[in-house]
Design a protein around this nucleic acid. Structure first.
Lengths: 203, 203, 203, 203
DNA sequence: CATGAATGAGGCTTCATTCAT
DNA sequence: AATGAATGAAGCCTCATTCAT
C-alpha cells in the first residue's frame, strides 16, 4: 500500500503555491483511496517528489491536511445543489457515476470520506455533509408521509451505488454508464420522492 | 479507541479451544466496529483477558485472525440465502436492519468489512463475498434485459442502507424499523427485480 | 550528549520489575544531568540495555517517566523534614553537600529539577516542592519581622550552593566538605533565621 | 513556546548590520527565557521579522549565535566590576534584583545561562564567567582563612537569589525590593567576606 | 505449551540547516 | 547578497510480532 499513485516527480519547481497545491492534490488521491488512517504523509510527499516535512510546514499536521483536502471535496459535492431542483436526482447520479475526477482518484467525495470513517470526528463530518447536501436537497423534492425517511432511503441508494462501484467493484455496475442506469433510476426516484408516498406504482 | 468492548474479564480457563473461540468472537466485534487497520491485537486480547501473544500462537498473525473472523462473517451472511427465493429481498432487508447481532457488534458483516476496505486484498474478498451471496442470490430473481445490472443496483441499495445506518448515521433511517421501510422497499424491489425490466411503472 | 552514563548492560534479565526499576534509575540519572528536554528516551533505554519502546510500555510517555522519577526525588527531598526542627538547617546542608546519591547522579533533587525548568509545568512543580519542603520547613524556625523573606533568602542560599557545586562547578565549593562549610553556615543561619531579625550580629 | 516576545514586526530595513544586531538582541531575550535547547532559531527570526536563514547567513549556526549573544551577556555582567571595590556586593545584589534588563528579558545573564546548562560546553563557559567576574571580584574583598571558599559561598548566595526569583519564583523573594533585602544582605556579607573569617558572630 | 517481556519497524512531527533562485 | 523553499536527522510514540522462561 505504499505503491506509487500518479506521477511521482523526481524533482519539484521551487514554488510554494505550486508545491502546496500538488501536496493537496496528492493528499486527496491518497485519502480517497486509502482512507485517513491508511495514508501516511511520507507517501503523499513522495507522490509530489518532496520531503515529508514540507507537509507539516505547509499544513501543520496530517489532520489539518485532511481537513483542507476534504473541505475541497465537500465544496465540490455541495456544488451539485446549484441548478434546477427537479433535476437534482439526475445530477446526483451523474456525479456518482462520473469517472473524471482526477482530483480525488475518480472517487466521489463521500465515498472517499467513508474510507476514513474509523475516526469518530471524521465520521461526524461525513454525517453532517451527507445530511446537509444530499438529504437536505432531496428532502425538498419529497412530500407526503415519511418524506424524511424516503429522502434518506434515496440518498442511501446513491451512497450504495457509489460504494458498489468504487469499493465493492460490483461487476456490471462498476462499468455502467449513465444511460444504462438512468431508466431504473428515474422509476425509483418517482417512487421514493415523487407523489405523496401512498400511491402504488401500478395503481 | 482503547475503549472496552464487552466483558474484558480475566480469562482463567486453560482450554485452548475456548480461548481460541473467545478471541475469534472478540475479533469479530472489534474488526466490525473499528475496521482492520483501526483494531490492534492487544485490545482483542484484553477483551478476552489473555495476553496478545496468544493471538499469534493460535492464529499466526493479525491478518490470519481477520481472515478467519471474516470467513465466519461471510458464512453468517450466506445463511440468508437459505429459504424461499421469493422472500430473499425481505430477508436481506431484515438482516440489514437487524440490530441483534452481538457476534459482530450489531453490524452487518459486509458493512463491517467495508470498514477495512482500505486494504486491497480485503477489498477483493469483499467483492467476492458480495457477489457470491447478495448479487448471485438476487440475480436469480431478476429476469429480462439488464438483469445483472438490476440485481447489482438492488444490492447497492441494501449496501447503501447499511452504510447510511451504521456509518453515516442518517437521522431517520438509522432508527427506522422494518415495518416503516418495508412498503417502499417492496415497490423498489418490484421495479428493480420484478417484471422484465422494460415496463414503465405507470404503463 | 548521547554519551554513556553508568553501566550500559548489553543484556537484561527478563524481569518486569527489575527492568522497570532499572529504567527509572537510569531516567533519574539522565534527567538529573541533562534535564528533561535534553534527555532522550533512547539513551535511557540504552543505559539499561533495552529497547526504547519498553519505556513507553512501562511508563506511558517520556513525561510520565519524568513525573515518576521526580516524584521519587521529591519524596527523598521531603524526608529531610523528619527529625529535630532545630537541626533542620544542618540536615539541609548535609543533603546539599552529599555526594553519595547514585540514584540521581549525585545531584540534589531540586538541582536536578532545575535542569528541566524550561518546561513551564515542571517549573511549577519545582516551585511547589521548594516551597513545601525547604521554605515551609525553614519558615517554622524563623520569627520576627520579615520571617518569610528571611526563610526564602536562606533557602536561596542552599539552592545557590547546590547550583554552584553541580552546575557552575565552583572551584573550591565543589569540593568542599561539610566540616569546612559548617562554621560559616551556622553564622548565616543565626542571622537569617535566629533571633527576631532585628538584632545585629555583633550587637 | 511559540509565543510572541516583543515586537515581531516585519523587518524592512535592508541594512545588514541593523538586522544582525536585531537578531542578536532577540536571541538574548529568547535564550534567557527559554534556554539554548528550548529556543528555536525560527522564533528568533520571527521576532525580528526576517527569515530564519539569515541567522545562518550572519552567524553560521545556532550555536555561534548563542556564543555571540552570551559573550555580550558576559560583558554586561563584567561591567559590574567597575567601580569602588567595597561597594561591589551591593552592586551585585542590585544587579540580581534589577528588573530593568530588556536586553535579556529581565534576567541576570548568569541565570539566563543556567537555563542552557544542559550542554557541557555551555556549562564550561558558565563556570569561567562566574569565576572570572563574581568570584574573582568578591575574592579581592575577602581575606583570612578560607577566603576562596567564603567568596564562593557568597557568590553562591547571589546565584541562589537569582534562581529563587526567576526560576523557582519564590513567593516573597520574587517580589522583594532592594531595600527589603539589603539589611540582611549586608550582615551576611560581613560574615562571609569581612573580617578574617575566624571571629564568631557573637564573640 | 503458556506467559509476558522485549523488539524493531514505521508513523507523526520538529528543527537546524542547506540550496536554488 | 537576500530570500524562502526544501531537506534530513532525530525525537516521541504505537503496534505487530518474536523470544526467553
Amino acid at each position: 500500500m505504499t505503491a506509487s499513485f500518479g506521477s511521482r516527480q523526481p524533482h519539484h519547481r521551487r514554488d510554494r503555491e505550486t508545491t502546496r497545491a500538488a501536496l493537496l492534490a496528492a493528499a486527496r488521491v491518497r485519502f480517497a483511496r486509502e482512507g485517513y488512517g491508511g495514508t501516511n504523509v511520507r507517501s503523499i510527499a513522495q507522490d509530489v517528489g518532496v520531503d515529508a516535512s514540507l507537509v507539516f510546514r505547509y499544513f501543520g499536521s496530517k489532520r489539518k491536511l485532511f481537513d483542507e483536502a476534504s473541505a475541497e471535496d465537500a465544496q465540490a459535492a455541495g456544488a451539485v445543489l446549484a441548478g434546477p431542483a427537479e433535476q437534482l436526482p439526475t445530477r446526483l447520479l451523474e456525479m456518482i457515476l462520473h469517472e473524471e475526477r482526477p482530483e480525488s482518484a475518480g472517487e466521489h467525495p463521500f465515498i472517499a470520506m467513508l474510507r476514513s470513517a474509523d475516526d469518530e470526528t471524521i465520521r461526524d463530518r461525513l454525517h453532517d455533509q451527507v445530511c446537509d447536501t444530499y438529504i437536505a436537497g432531496l428532502r425538498t423534492l419529497a412530500s407526503g408521509p415519511d418524506a424524511d425517511l424516503r429522502a434518506e432511503l434515496f440518498s442511501a441508494w446513491l451512497l450504495g451505488i457509489g460504494v458498489a462501484r468504487s469499493v465493492v467493484r460490483s461487476d456490471v455496475l462498476a462499468e455502467a454508464t449513465l444511460s444504462q442506469v438512468a431508466p431504473y433510476f428515474e422509476r425509483v426516484a418517482d417512487i421514493l420522492l415523487g407523489g405523496d408516498g401512498t400511491e402504488t406504482p401500478n395503481g
